[in-house]
């Protein structure tokens, strides 16, 4: 089976001094749950943003579902982006709008400028939005303004907005970094369900190594813009985690890992 996503020697240079990615290659198969770990500034966010071309890569090739992401024109890129959902650490919702309005934003990629701008969604789309809201347990909040929600609820709105795109893959940039352990678990469980039940591939940037080990099928370690680990969570060793995070932080994380295994 062809991989859903293939990345070939991806490079991203912001300015003379900052090389965020320095030749990263890997591929992801349909239905995989992949976590990307690595220290702050390693280039994880840059990597995710290159995949749906929110930022343009400097060099390298990205193939998504057989399409070369770099070669798409404006219209093709919009269409391609509908197939890739994205959620963020800070949720990035329009706070003054209601939950349902934010969820429907996920359909904008399918609409023409006029209907999209005026928010003219079809009955079918609205029905689908409410179904997704219900799946994520937000039915009581559907008409609330987003600035009245808790962090965990906001993230679920973010997931709903991505799901209504009917994506084949989800890019998640530190989805639980601003959440308490309880809300984090809810969000991670939802993401895992999305992969196992809906078959949507997940690519998740995580700072919590123990969470990454617990939920993922595969771990990719990134350091200084390079891939330094790629393999199943079971076979990653303490030394490799040390290596990814550099000693002091490594100690802290290894303790967590021991607890996890105990």
């Amino acid at each position: 089976m062809n991989p859903l996503l293939t990345i070939n020697s991806l490079k991203k240079q912001y300015d003379e001094e900052t090389v965020a990615l320095n030749g990263v290659s890997f591929s992801v198969h349909e239905g995989e749950f992949v976590s990307i770990i690595g220290p702050s500034g390693a280039g994880k966010s840059t990597l995710l943003r290159c995949i749906n071309r929110i930022i343009d890569a400097t060099e390298g090739e990205i193939l998504f579902d057989g399409l070369n992401v770099g070669n798409q024109n404006k219209g093709q890129l919009r269409k391609l982006r509908t197939k890739i959902g994205m959620i963020f650490q800070h949720y990035n919702l329009v706070n003054r709008l209601s939950v349902i309005e934010n969820v429907l934003h996920g359909r904008l990629g399918y609409k023409n400028t006029f209907n999209g701008s005026l928010g003219l969604f079809t009955a079918q789309e609205k029905k689908q939005a409410f179904q997704i809201i219900e799946i994520l347990g937000l039915e009581k909040q559907a008409y609330k303004r987003c600035d009245q929600l808790s962090g965990g609820q906001k993230q679920r709105v973010g997931i709903a907005r991505a799901l209504i795109q009917e994506p084949r893959m989800m890019l998640c940039d530190e989805p639980i970094a601003s959440l308490d352990p309880n809300a984090s678990k809810i969000i991670m469980d939802h993401l895992k369900n999305i992969t196992t039940q809906m078959g949507i591939t997940c690519l998740v940037n995580l700072h919590q190594v123990n969470v990454a080990l617990k939920y993922s099928d595969r771990i990719i370690g990134i350091k200084h813009g390079l891939k330094v680990y790629d393999g199943p969570p079971k076979s990653i060793t303490k030394n490799q985690i040390y290596d990814i995070y550099e000693s002091e932080a490594g100690e802290l994380i290894l303790e967590l890992k021991d607890q996890n295994e105990a």
């Binding site: 943003r49 749906n52 929110i54 919009r78 269409k79 391609l80 982006r81 509908t82 890739i84 959902g85 994205m86 963020f88 800070h90 990035n92 919702l93 329009v94 706070n95 003054r96 709008l97 934003h105 996920g106 359909r107 904008l108 990629g109 399918y110 609409k111 400028t113 999209g116 701008s117 005026l118 928010g119 973010g158 907005r161 991505a162 795109q165 890019l171």
Partner: peptide, 25 residues
């Protein structure tokens, strides 16, 4: 900026972002 980024990621175009995110905000 993140909101604009999020709607771009959904496939929204510039006018849609203006009227669905910028104006309401």
């Amino acid at each position: 900026h993140g909101v604009i980024e999020a709607l771009t990621a959904c496939g929204a175009n510039w006018w849609q972002i203006v009227f669905q995110a910028v104006v309401p905000s």
